[in-house]
């Protein structure tokens, strides 16, 4: 673990100031337990606790997942530590009117990437310096040029395979699913109070962890995130069965990119592909 001490110090003082001036009721950031392998989400409500915040290269979690929660909202205005990638999720929450911009104080953190080796999302990240935050702690970092061909590499590695090979791969992967719903609960954009898999009249998705139910669940999950997913990769990280969910999301993001030139979460004002249309949209394969 490498603690970024400059950012950590500025972060602590910014959080303490926001809390002591009453500008926010809570600051959501990262903390670190001794001996822990990752930094974890932390809720700070008193200025004197701000010194427990930390920013290092293991701040994997996407804190935006907490924003739609009633318990968190009831604490008042929310200060939230955001990396560029987290900001994309918040932009989607804003464009979907799940949270109001006025209820948030965005504490941007320039980030050169998380994990060692770097997470995939970090190696293709073009948001090292979050834009549109209320404040930025730490100095801007250099934004390296990214290799856009790598953006969808996990999906691309499967695109080359035949239909039968893909089914063999995915039926094997999806058979592992135990339906714990960690992928859903960790996703900042899966904020439905009652998920489609929990609906019983009709029962769209079999809740049993057999392949039939697992395929239906994973198709539904992927499709509900199409044009919305910002590629934070939390679902794949959370999956206790190591199912490569990121590849599915990449595939759908790639389609949105190729068909509509759309990248989700770059601005709170964007229109999601499935909420709009063009008369001359691609129409291949319609009879």
């Amino acid at each position: 673990m490498n603690v970024n001490s400059t950012v950590t110090e500025s972060l602590q003082s910014a959080a303490a100031t926001l809390l002591s001036e009453g500008k926010v009721g809570v600051v959501i950031g990262y903390g670190r337990d001794a001996g822990a392998s990752i930094s974890h989400p932390m809720f700070i409500r008193k200025p004197e606790d701000a010194e427990r915040l930390v920013f290092d290269d293991c701040c994997f979690g996407n804190l935006a997942v907490y924003l739609p929660r009633d318990k968190v909202r009831s604490m008042g205005k929310i200060g939230i530590v955001v990396k560029g990638c987290d900001l994309r999720a918040i932009n989607v929450l804003l464009r979907e009117h799940v949270v109001k911009r006025d209820d948030l104080v965005l504490i941007g953190v320039p980030c050169t990437g998380q994990g060692d080796p770097l997470l995939h999302k970090c190696s293709v990240c073009e948001q090292h310096n979050p834009e549109g935050c209320d404040m930025v702690v730490g100095d801007p970092v250099e934004q390296p040029a990214i290799d856009a061909t790598q953006r969808y590499k996990d999906a691309a590695s499967l695109d080359d395979k035949s239909l039968e090979e893909r089914w063999a791969f995915w039926s094997g992967q999806l058979s592992k699913c135990i339906r714990c719903y960690a992928c859903r609960n960790v996703c900042p954009l899966c904020y439905c109070k009652r998920c489609i898999t929990e609906k019983t009249i009709p029962q769209w998705i079999d809740t049993s962890a057999h392949l039939r139910g697992n395929v239906a669940w994973n198709v539904a999950r992927a499709f509900h995130l199409t044009g919305r997913c910002v590629g934070c990769g939390e679902c794949e990280r959370a999956c206790p069965m190591d199912i490569p969910l990121g590849a599915i999301n990449q595939k759908m993001a790639q389609l949105m990119d190729e068909w509509y030139g759309f990248h989700s979460g770059l601005s709170p004002d964007e229109k999601a592909p499935f909420t709009t249309f063009k008369v001359d949209d691609p129409e291949t394969g319609i009879l």
């Binding site: 932390m42 339906r179 714990c180 719903y181 960690a182 859903r184 960790v186 206790p240």
Partner: peptide, 11 residues
Amino acid sequence: LKCLGCGACSY
């Protein structure tokens, strides 16, 4: 507060 309510631990 921190718990996301997923079932990974129980499963």
